[in-house]
Simulated scan of single mutants.
Amino acid sequence: MARPGRDPRFVDAILDWPPTWFLARLLLVSAYLLGGLVKLTDWPGAVAEQAHFGMTPPALWAALTIAVELAGSALLLAGRLVWLGAGALGVFTLLAACTANAFWTMPAGPERFMATNAFFEHLGLIGGLVLAALVSELEAGRDRRRA
Rank of each mutant, 00 (worst) to 15 (best):
M106H: 13
L81D: 00
V82F: 04
V29S: 07
G72H: 04
L129F: 09
V82P: 03
E121A: 12
S136D: 14
A48Y: 06
I14A: 15
L94P: 04
E139P: 00
T41W: 10
W17C: 15
P44S: 09
A51P: 14
G87C: 12
R144V: 02
L75S: 03
A133G: 10
S30Q: 11
L70W: 11
G54I: 14
N117H: 09
L134S: 02
T41C: 02
R80L: 13
L89M: 10
T65L: 06
G79V: 04
Q50I: 09
G36D: 00
L26H: 04
F22S: 08
N117Y: 10
N117R: 14
S73L: 02
G127E: 00
V68W: 08
A24S: 03
I14F: 15
L89W: 11
G36K: 11
H52I: 01
A74C: 08
P57M: 14
L15R: 05
L129A: 09
F92H: 13
P18W: 06
A115K: 03
A62E: 11
S136H: 08
F119C: 09
L60E: 10
L60T: 12
C98Y: 07
P58N: 12
L81S: 11
D7I: 03
W83F: 15
G87N: 11
A132M: 05
A62W: 12
A86M: 05
L125S: 05
L15Q: 06
G54V: 12
A100V: 01
L89Y: 10
R3G: 10
A71W: 11
V47C: 11
M114F: 05
A24L: 08
W104D: 07
A118F: 09
L34D: 02
P107N: 12
I14N: 07
A67D: 01
A115F: 00
H122Y: 00
A62G: 13
C98R: 08
A48S: 14
A59V: 15
Y32I: 02
A133N: 01
H122C: 02
A71Y: 09
G141A: 09
A88D: 08
W104G: 05
D16V: 07
I126Q: 07
V130Q: 01
L64N: 05
P4V: 08
P18V: 08
V91G: 01
L77M: 09
A108T: 15
A46K: 06
L134M: 01
L64V: 13
R6M: 08
E137V: 13
L138Q: 06
F120G: 05
A115R: 00
A133W: 06
A2D: 10
A97T: 09
F10K: 01
A97P: 07
H52L: 15
G141L: 12
P57N: 10
F119L: 11
W104V: 04
T41D: 05
F120E: 04
G45K: 10
L77F: 06
V47R: 08
E69K: 07
V91E: 03
V82Y: 05
L70A: 10
A24Y: 00
G87F: 04
A51W: 15
L33K: 04
L94Q: 02
F22I: 03
L77P: 00
A108K: 11
T65Q: 07
H122N: 10
A96I: 04
I66M: 14
G128D: 00
H52S: 15
W43R: 03
L134V: 14
G128L: 01
F103W: 14
S73G: 14
A132K: 00
L23Q: 01
V38S: 06
L34S: 13
W83P: 08
F120Q: 04
F113E: 15
